[in-house]
Simulated scan of single mutants.
Amino acid sequence: MKSIEQHKADGTYRKDRHKNKIDQSGFRVNEIPGCEDLPERAQDFFTELAALQIKSGQLTEVDIPALKILATSYSDYFDAVETLDIEGLIVGDDSPKLHPMNQVKKDAREFIFKLLREFGMTPTSRTRIISTDNIPQTAEEDDLTKLRKR
């Protein structure tokens, strides 16, 4: 679903349709939020992702919990990789089977990419994001509106 800002940028904003939508521009985050409750690796990743999202003008207060979950999943993925490096892919002598951390690694990787897409951090998902930096604040500032009045 498009934000109000995206509708305005696309020229599809209609006051009668979009008046009940919440404009999230007031919820924008301008500095990296605290993440001391996360594991150390997750803190580093969270800080990096938050900085990227803030720079692009996309991070809002309501995104922070999901971003923390993404960072934690990232940490879980690398914990699983390290465990597999140490313990090997196969466990059990009598009846060998795949190490359970293989599934943890696979699930974490899938979840990470799902959330990366949600945050517009993959090449294809990024094409759907419109920067809010150049969105006119009023209809009078919009060149297309001026052209239509001629």
Rank of each mutant, 00 (worst) to 15 (best):
T132H: 13
E61R: 13
E61V: 12
L89Q: 09
T145V: 11
H99W: 07
L115F: 11
L116I: 04
T132I: 14
K105E: 13
P136V: 14
S73L: 12
E48V: 09
T60G: 02
R128V: 14
S125E: 00
D94N: 15
L70P: 03
R126K: 13
K55M: 00
Q58T: 08
S56C: 08
L59R: 03
I135S: 08
S125G: 07
L98I: 06
D143L: 15
E87Y: 02
D79T: 00
L144P: 04
E48P: 00
T132S: 14
V81T: 08
T60C: 04
A108G: 02
P136G: 15
D76P: 02
T122H: 05
T138I: 03
E48L: 02
I54W: 03
D93C: 06
K114C: 06
V91D: 10
A51K: 11
N134R: 13
N102K: 05
Q58D: 14
G92K: 06
L52A: 11
G120N: 09
T124L: 15
Q53K: 10
P123R: 12
K97R: 14
V104S: 09
E82R: 01
D85S: 00
I112M: 09
I90F: 01
L89A: 15
I130Y: 01
A71K: 11
D93Q: 09
E61C: 06
E48S: 03
D143V: 09
G92F: 03
D79S: 12
K97P: 07
V62I: 11
E141P: 08
S73E: 15
D133M: 12
E140P: 03
R126I: 05
N102E: 05
T83G: 06
E141R: 12
K106P: 02
V91W: 12
S125N: 08
L67H: 02
E110S: 10
F78Q: 00
I86D: 14
I86W: 13
Q103F: 00
E82I: 00
L98N: 15
D93H: 11
T60P: 02
G88I: 01
E118C: 03
G57P: 03
R117A: 04
D85H: 01
L49M: 10
D133P: 01
N102C: 09
L52Y: 06
A108Q: 00
D93R: 07
